[in-house]
């Protein structure tokens, strides 16, 4: 698959184009268009749509809920739906809600596109783009710790339930309290991890030498340049067209 061979730097450019476009463009139809393009790009990168929906089901529901809330609380002159004379949904609100949902969806899809590359390769791409090694290394470390924190979060959820707490039965007010208790050990444990890593890095003389040799070296191919140039040119044209409408 060519998609698997695409250089992570090409994906970074693509993602930058998508996210920049969706933030700059204001026209509803064009915003929705960017949403469709981002999903198409994810599919071209080999992402399975159904698996993606299943994986991000909860986030998608959250995004949809946020968008609906935004629609309801945005006033506007043209009322679409009202209860006892109180406007609940306006045309402007609906437009704002859709735009919010698509914008967050594009950000989510961008993350998915980047996740199709091995994180080590992504970091190597950044290093070859002259991003300071220390910053690239920190980014790699933070990515490496995501599964660890996920596991710790799941363990904390289990441990809380073993205290006899039924998440489904507790009232909404107390649910927020529960999340504070869930997040506290994760923050403390991340601080502990950071402290331990700092000691381990110091003891291995991290950064003692200015120059480094690389085992993994990425090379941009012709199609990488093609995709990057096309993405930039198409993005500029798209934004220009959207601003002209």
């Amino acid at each position: 698959m060519m998609a698997a061979k695409i250089d992570p730097r090409t994906k970074i450019v693509l993602v930058l184009c998508l996210t920049s476009m969706v933030l700059v463009v204001e026209n509803l139809a064009f915003v929705v268009g960017i949403g469709i393009i981002s999903i198409a790009c994810a599919l071209l990168m080999g992402v399975q749509l159904l698996a993606l929906i299943r994986r991000y089901q909860r986030i998608l529901i959250l995004l949809l809920t946020l968008s609906i809330v935004q629609s309801i609380f945005t006033p506007g002159p043209k009322v679409l739906f009202e209860v006892f004379g109180i406007p609940l949904l306006t045309e402007k609100g609906l437009e704002m809600g859709i735009k919010t949902f698509v914008r967050m969806l594009v950000i989510l899809t961008s993350g998915v596109i980047m996740s199709t590359s091995n994180y080590r390769e992504t970091i190597q791409g950044l290093i070859q783009w002259k991003v300071p090694y220390k910053i690239a290394f920190m980014t790699a470390l933070s990515l490496r710790f995501i599964p660890i924190f996920t596991e710790e979060f799941q363990d904390s959820m289990v441990a809380l339930q073993l205290k006899g707490i039924d998440f489904k039965k507790i009232p909404f007010g107390k649910k927020t309290q529960i999340y504070v208790y869930l997040i506290t050990p994760i923050i403390l444990s991340s601080l502990k991890h950071a402290e331990e890593i700092a000691i381990a890095m110091e003891s291995r003389a991290f950064g003692a030498y200015q120059s480094r040799v690389e085992y993994l070296v990425l090379r941009l191919k012709g199609y990488d340049y093609g995709v990057m140039i096309a993405a930039v040119l198409l993005s500029i044209s798209y934004v220009w067209a959207a601003l002209m409408v």
């Binding site: 289990v158 339930q161 073993l162 205290k163 006899g164 707490i165 039924d166 998440f167």
Partner: peptide
């Protein structure tokens, strides 16, 4: 028994 019930 749910997890929370076992925990009790």
């Amino acid at each position: 028994l749910k997890l929370c019930e076992r925990g009790s």
